[in-house]
Design a binder for these strands. Structure first.
Lengths: 343, 343
DNA sequence: TTGTAGGCGTTATCAG
DNA sequence: CTGATAACGCCTACAA
């Protein structure tokens, strides 16, 4: 004999409601609501009854009803410039890991490196009344800024550091990282040092800036050796840009690529062209993607703390959501130069 | 003199409502609602008034209220097994491109190659009452199946073809693709042919199966040369598995890797070990990731139609949402062997 | 600690 | 073609 249980097949409506759970548990809807939300004012015994009723019915809250009633959804939104870059996938992953135990859903938005798409996403997500927002960098439209300000919703900025506006941010100094690469190439006695960057997002430009300044200081800067293109960064593009650069300026003996994928392309093309790395040219990448430890030769790169950034940004956002008054608004997580064979 | 306009700064509430838009437009809320939803029964003139009022107020619908009232959100959910695989990013991208013009938001779920995580995601997303669901493959828990069935929500399955259950699916035959690779290596006169697969998801196993069967038919199958590991696929893992395999079975002269990243790792390791590809060993990958055209040597791979899969799956889902009775439930988009230098 | 009353912003239904 | 009315499922505020 099967145990007496609520027969789902007799339900006419699509899905059990809080009211039904309450009926089964023999309490009022509000008590059921409180019990399910883990509000401590509910007696242990009632809470147990409610939970087992919910279980029995297969009850899942209706997020729309909850959001409408409470004017707030159990959601945080993250907007990254790209999903094609493994970097941001890792950031998203750590954010998930922090948010999930708190019962917060993570909405993922891809702005495709466009300020306008980002603004649209922000508008869209704000409509959902998220608990908080995680954004990438500081480069956005005025409209987006106004939306954020008006919304009053907690917001943490990832990847770069704030230059004084007082935003909550978690990242590292892109400028310093660029400078560190220049330093490294200079220490390697390189004389004709190039920068190759694609995508031209704010962070790439800041890296280029730090790099350039350091070279200028060493009187070793040649603007002809700065290659910038708005095309999306990729291994194929790295091949192409490296070949072009070496053809035009054969004297180049050191190159900093704004992203590891470009650098990886360059290594492959060098192999094909018979250019020996690092003997003839030192190559340095950026981000230290997992595959960069396995290239031939292994790629020297700046390791960026993206997992930590995602985690700390998420934790910071949580504390803002809780209403904590934060002491430190800016968290510098640093970076590390991974010196390998390519330089 | 600035034009007379609604002064947002005097608003006490956070956000304009439909009612306010209606007031400004001088119509009833329901008319405003209809106008904004583009329901044709509204007079042109009123519609214009409503739209300009909405514009003026910066009105954005409250998705929660809409979902609650209509028992349906303007959302479709997609669940992929991983975001680390570029493959699925491309699928997501095409889905977006199809859904966005229809005003449908795309919820992205990452199941991390886990049936249990997938079930949780399905439960979570169904709670949101999406218009439809896009899932990857057919491998899922019984619980997930029941949820899907009970929900009655349109669902399209991506990447693989249905083996008779009558689901709506868009993909290609993983088994045939595996067989095609075997065929190719046999045609290259390879005698000691290995398979290397990681992750061991359903699709990888199906590829292995097709590959194995074709080799058996040619009496060229050696089970010792089938390397399977549950570890996540990566370039680093490819390096490692290739080195191990060549050490244990130096006579191997052809390898099919279940994913391009593994194959790319193998190419790098071969370079390091001084094993000439394809002279000593033919190497074939799977998926034809963008970078595979640039490896040294360039990688032979199966090009899978992931952009097309995303697009067609999204279109199919849209038509199911519209209530179309579909003639064809299964769409085979095929695959293509890209023969390059590595085989 | 529990319950009652009311409303969140929108849409479905049906009447005009 | 337009509008009044009543939900949708849940939560806040207050009362018991």
């Amino acid at each position: 004999m099967s145990p007496p249980r609520y027969d789902k097949s007799t339900r006419t409506k699509g899905r059990p409601t809080l009211k039904e759970v309450a009926q089964v548990a023999g309490v009022s809807p509000i008590t059921a609501s409180r019990a399910l939300r883990g509000i401590s004012s509910v007696t242990e015994e009632l809470a147990v009854r409610v939970h087992s009723a919910a279980e029995q019915l297969g009850y899942v809250v209706n997020p729309a009803a909850r959001a409408l009633a409470s004017a707030c959804s159990q959601t945080v939104a993250v907007i990254v410039p790209s999903l094609g870059n493994q970097l941001f996938i890792e950031v998203l992953e750590s954010i998930h890991q922090v948010m999930r135990p708190h019962g917060l859903e993570v909405l993922i938005g891809n702005a495709h490196y466009s300020r306008y798409e980002e603004e649209d996403l922000i508008r869209q997500y704000l409509a959902h009344q998220p608990q908080g927002l995680l954004l990438t960098g500081f480069e956005r439209t005025e409209g987006a800024r106004r939306l954020l300000e008006a919304s009053q919703i907690p917001c943490v900025y990832m990847m770069d550091l704030d230059s004084g506006v007082g935003l909550h941010c978690v990242g590292f100094s892109q400028v310093q990282a660029g400078a560190a690469v220049a330093e490294h190439l200079l220490a390697r006695q390189r004389k004709h040092i190039a920068f190759v960057g694609a995508q031209l997002d704010q962070r790439t430009l800041l890296r280029a800036e730090g790099f350039r300044h350091r070279l200028q200081k060493a009187r070793c800067y040649n603007p002809m050796l700065e290659v910038l293109t708005p095309q999306p960064s990729s291994i194929g593009l790295g091949c192409e840009l490296f070949a072009q650069l070496m053809q035009r300026y054969p004297q180049v003996d050191g190159i900093f690529f704004g992203n590891d994928d470009l650098a990886q392309g360059a290594l492959l093309e060098a192999l094909r062209m018979g250019i020996s790395i690092p003997q003839q040219v030192s190559i340095v990448g950026f981000n230290d993607l997992p595959s960069s430890a396995f290239t031939v030769p292994r790629l020297t790169s700046i390791r960026t703390p993206r997992a930590a950034i995602g985690q700390r940004a998420a934790e910071l956002l949580l504390s803002l959501i809780e209403g904590d008054t934060i002491g430190q608004r800016t968290q510098d997580l640093g970076f590390e130069l991974m010196v390998r064979e390519s330089s």
